[in-house]
């Protein structure tokens, strides 16, 4: 438990010193929003609002893939990953510490992207900001759990940049579909639907448990 907190603190501190992942993800997801402007008929406007929730999550997933890929490269320098593997603790806590740090580092980019979506699609998100943040948190939790696990895997394979999305995207279908559905209903009606949230919670719990238990096998050399 303390090991998880130590790792979380260490990752956030390193990110705070350089801020390179936060800035890169932020710019990246704003660029993705720009691309949507050119790929939608009539651009991002009130007329294309119906596409906004789906596209928002596409931007989130792409930004997360981008940021998660870097999560373990910082552990490769000076073989720091071995330092984590040496810790006499349940390795699941190492996983949780890394996953929570990823979740935290993702948050600024996500908030800014949501703001940009509201602006370009003429959506007023301020009224639903709190429940939307909740949905984003639930979705991102699942995203960061498998994302962290397979980031640790991909970083030690050849073609690591290609490997992470290939491994991750098929596993993200339940999370993306639940999040998009929940976001759509929330923006349309102002209330949070039960079924997609249920799917998100079940997926998050299942992924977190399996990742916690299997991280031991990933951390071994």
């Amino acid at each position: 438990m303390n090991v998880g907190l130590a790792i979380f603190w260490k990752d956030v501190l390193i990110e705070w010193r350089s801020r390179d992942r936060v800035v890169a993800m932020l710019l990246f997801s704003l660029l993705v929003v720009m691309i949507f402007q050119f790929s939608l008929p009539g651009g991002a406007s009130a007329d294309t609002q119906v596409y906004a929730p789906g596209l928002l999550w596409v931007a989130y997933v792409l930004a997360a893939l981008f940021g998660l890929g870097r999560a373990f490269t910082l552990e490769l320098e000076n073989d720091a990953l071995s330092g984590l593997a040496l810790a006499p603790a349940e390795r699941g806590w190492v996983f949780l510490g890394k996953a929570l740090a990823n979740l935290t580092i993702l948050a600024p980019a996500q908030a800014a992207t949501a703001f940009a979506f509201g602006l370009f699609f003429a959506l007023d998100l301020t009224a639903v900001a709190a429940p939307l943040a909740g949905i984003v948190l639930l979705g991102s939790l699942g995203l960061c759990s498998v994302g962290t696990l397979f980031s640790a895997v991909a970083v030690r394979t050849r073609f690591r940049e290609v490997m992470l999305p290939l491994l991750l995207l098929p596993l993200l279908v339940p999370i993306v579909s639940g999040s998009v559905r929940a976001t759509t209903v929330l923006i349309a009606t102002g209330s949070v639907p039960f079924e997609p949230i249920q799917l998100l919670v079940v997926t998050d719990v299942a992924y977190l448990i399996v990742c916690f238990l299997t991280f031991d096998y990933v951390l071994d050399e």
Partner: peptide, 24 residues
């Protein structure tokens, strides 16, 4: 090890405090 296991972006003190917390 052959590598130092240290994080270059952290100070020596921060590195050691982190390691100490890893070992409880």
């Amino acid at each position: 090890g052959h590598a130092t296991l240290l994080y270059p972006a952290l100070t020596a003190r921060e590195n050691l405090v982190f390691a100490a917390r890893l070992y409880g």
